[in-house]
Design a protein around this nucleic acid. Structure first.
Lengths: 112, 112
DNA sequence: TTGACACATTCGTCTATCCGGATATATTCT
DNA sequence: AGAATATATCCGGATAGACGAATGTGTCAA
């Protein structure tokens, strides 16, 4: 039960919902891509990623200087929630804007 | 988006998840049924019901002295989330215990 | 080894929310 | 009106979490 509450706490924040939407849509993103897309300070993005990781929503993987985040596989409850998020979050205008903004970043040169 | 965040904030608490599970399972319950089932102070239960109502998760209906709460109908996002909750929350032991405890209350004399 | 870059963490501050006893309100019955 | 019951709200105190600038850490290349 504690874990379940933690899942929802992790989703109870606008920035973290935007991050989840981007990861669910794009599969895998590094912190600089997320920072550029969300247009927020890097420390803010990193802090929220840390929260999502502790809650079990995402995994990270280092590749050289970059750290890539993905949505973690999970139990029934989490998988079903992720399905709902993936389907419904893009209906929100701010999420749709994020997805467009991410797509418009130059592919090779996303990270300054 | 603000509303969506509010939906999740409302679910980011153990007591409120337990309440949602009971309402999703039983359809309609008055505050005294919930208080007896959850074994929490009445003011605590009432406060959480108020939070759920403000977030748009539940509706209330007065019938004499009692106030009955039900899960509110909602948009796509909310309906899908409610479906997941209804299906998955009873898998948690504390929720299953609540459901049993509610069932064991004498039908006619639930409210002291 | 020095510099540059990506990322994480620390820090002080501020706001939201939790708790539960006490109290207020609404309704019904006599 | 007055008492009893169900529910809501108030209160003070405690904790969690958000923010962003500054600083720390890890990696690579020259």
């Amino acid at each position: 039960m504690k874990h379940t509450v933690q899942y929802f706490k992790a989703l109870a924040d606008e920035t973290r919902l935007r991050i989840m939407a981007l990861l669910l849509t794009s599969g895998e993103l590094c912190v600089c891509d997320l920072t550029a897309t969300l247009q927020l300070p890097q420390s803010t993005v990193s802090r929220h990623l840390s929260y999502l990781k502790n809650a079990g929503w995402v995994n990270d993987r280092r590749e050289g200087v970059w750290i890539y985040y993905t949505v973690a596989a999970g139990n029934n409850m989490k998988r079903h929630l992720a399905d709902v998020l993936k389907e419904r979050l893009p209906e929100l205008t701010s999420v749709a804007d994020d997805i467009k903004r991410l797509a418009s970043l130059a592919d090779g040169a996303r990270c300054a």
